[in-house]
Design a protein around this nucleic acid. Structure first.
Lengths: 222, 222
DNA sequence: CCATCTAAAATGTCTGGACAAATTAAGTCT
DNA sequence: AGACTTAATTTGTCCAGACATTTTAGATGG
């Protein structure tokens, strides 16, 4: 039905570019401007109306782009005033979360972990064999990449498969007592030992888990 | 067209209540519903269209409300699927987690982690693309499988790639202060947040690390 | 000169509508 | 039964307009 579609005008250049949302392109442009010094820290970004004119887009899109910068902590928006540039570097969300007093700055470990994907998949043959399960079983695949610094080199790629049912348990653990995490982590570390790796993973239950009626507290996972 | 707008309550009646934006009221209502169990964790919230009908507002407003919940880490939105309820509590739960001293009561979590393989490989094309490195770069692939009980069903397969150089640093970290682990763990969790996953990874020095002679104290990784 | 008022500017909130893209489930064909 | 196609559902992106609220600066009047 809607196949014919006029393709709108944004796609005129290249559909490759259209894969990146407009508001993203705009936020990237503004971000570059901030880093280049076009919009120094302490000054105000152009108003929304001017940005609308400059990027030839709707206000909603402009605001979406500005929201990206705001979420990054680069700007602060104030009604009646404007969009104030706060910083040129994105402050990783964890910075303000780490309320630990000292051990924070002890290491200039500016590694950043970025979640690549998080999706339910069904085990194909090779994966099923590796996991020792049946083909078609559902798993939750978590893909994450840890990089060093901003554009830094990649350090670690984590590819983890978790069964959905396990999610409910993990959720319970996370909800009530985190020390369990600690313990599991230690368990993990213990078992590996010679690698000094710690890992704990849990995924929240999806409707699947709800359907199965896995009540928290029932150790009847086996 | 904009039909005169019914003036809603902002006018003169209750300006106190009018201070709360509509999308905020909606998000609060949904939040209450989540906490009350109307939308259990693991299920999906009503679709946007239904919410539009239920709250008699525009889609933009509904989406704004859902964005609030998303930013709180309570729900996760996925195109084509819906809005999944992840948790009933916002993230602050993890704050006190790190500090909890002990109480590592034993949990009937008889999961066992078994190391499957641990070998150096060279990135092929797909892996290189995923890692964002060049083909041929060396990595250490760690394969582990976590099973439940002895012969139990598999629960989690971990496939981690770590650069050899990073191993030395991990060793340094692990050797001296564990708080760093804490921090990294927290970082990780924070970045993922909506999945309640924590992960830290490091690799003990192998002969390789020894050969490289990476002295502890040299932060010259970058 | 100073207080007050007014108007302009800027972001916040809200309503319409339309198409795009991803997911899922149903259906069809082999 | 299994693979492929189709259609329906759902969120993502984008546009155009309107009014509200806050802030700032200018104008006014004492």
């Amino acid at each position: 039905m809607q196949v014919e579609q006029v393709k709108k005008r944004p796609g005129e250049g290249a559909q490759g570019a259209s894969r990146v949302p407009l508001y993203r392109q705009i936020s990237d442009t503004l971000l570059a401007g901030i880093r280049e010094g076009k919009f120094p820290v302490g000054t105000f970004l152009p108003g929304e109306l001017e940005l609308i004119d400059r990027f030839d887009s709707s206000r909603h899109t402009i605001r979406e782009a500005l929201r990206v910068l705001e979420d990054m902590g680069l700007v602060k928006r104030q009604r009646g005033r404007g969009t104030l540039v706060l910083s040129t570097e994105a402050s990783p969300a964890f910075v303000q979360m780490v309320r630990s007093p000292s051990e924070l700055f002890s290491y200039p470990d500016s590694s950043i972990f970025r979640l690549l994907s998080d999706e339910r998949i069904k085990a194909n043959k090779p994966l099923a064999k590796e996991l020792g399960c049946q083909v078609g079983d559902e798993w939750v695949q978590i893909l994450g990449l840890r990089t060093l610094g901003e554009d830094g080199i990649p350090i670690c790629l984590a590819d983890v498969y978790v069964i959905p049912e396990y999610g409910s348990i993990a959720q319970r653990l996370g909800g009530s007592s985190s020390p369990v995490y600690e313990m599991i982590a230690e368990t993990f570390k213990e078992s590996i030992e010679n690698i000094t790796i710690r890992l704990t993973a849990g995924v929240l239950s999806e409707q699947k888990a709800a359907k199965l009626g896995v009540e928290p507290g029932s150790p009847s996972l086996s």
